[in-house]
């Protein structure tokens, strides 16, 4: 094992272990915090793979933005602070079986297909310089389309979360959904 492989294996163990903690812990806030550990370990893995720019974007967007957004969601849905027993649904053993089967198939395929392959790691392949040139030279059209998509999702999120926007044609008739009509019982 070379030094890179040792470091990457350690980071991978951290990432997988904290990922297991994310899906098994009984406290919602702890799940979000274990997610930070997973993303940080993966960012370290990107650094080992010489993808520096992707690593920093991972830290900025995932650890900085997405986890904070998830924590806001946890707070706004008034989740219990302590442990709660009913975070897992009843089909968790089926889910564990499906996940084990998925892991077995994927690991087998990857190990059989790429066991002997080595990748040449050379510094500079993932610098901001190289990636910026690639984005704005080759991939500029997908980049622009993606910015439109981001704008659309932003507008959609605002429209969904504002409560004072209502369609004008529908009057404010509302029985709560699922309540039987009055004459029924």
């Amino acid at each position: 094992m070379s030094g890179q492989e040792v470091v990457f294996a350690l980071l991978g163990v951290v990432a997988v272990g904290s990922g297991i903690m994310v899906v098994t812990t009984r406290q919602l806030v702890h799940a979000a915090l274990w997610l930070v550990v997973t993303f940080g370990a993966l960012a370290g893995g990107y650094l080992v793979l010489t993808a520096e720019f992707v690593a920093w974007v991972q830290v900025l967007i995932y650890v900085g933005a997405i986890v904070v957004l998830l924590l806001f969601g946890i707070m706004l849905t008034r989740a219990p602070i302590g442990g709660s027993a009913d975070l897992d649904s009843g089909n968790r053993w089926v889910a564990a079986g499906v996940a084990a089967a998925t892991a077995a198939v994927l690991v087998t395929v990857m190990a059989m297909g790429f066991w002997d392959e080595r990748m040449p790691l050379r510094a500079g392949g993932g610098s901001a310089d190289a990636l910026g040139a690639a984005v704005f030279r080759t991939w500029v059209l997908p980049f622009e389309v993606l910015s439109v998509l981001l704008l659309a999702s932003l507008v959609g999120a605002i429209v969904l979360s504002r409560s004072d926007i209502r369609p004008k044609s529908r009057p404010a008739e509302k029985r709560p959904a699922g309540t039987p009509a009055d004459g029924e019982r």
Binding site: F8, A15, V98, L106, V107, F114, E117
Partner: peptide
């Protein structure tokens, strides 16, 4: 560096995510 390391880590993470999507209630 062997290609097997990142691919195996990615496969394990993906199956953990599959478990979480299927088993979690919140």
């Amino acid at each position: 560096m062997h290609l097997a390391y990142p691919t195996v880590v990615a496969a394990l993470l993906f199956s953990i995510g599959v478990y979480g999507v299927l088993a979690r209630r919140n």
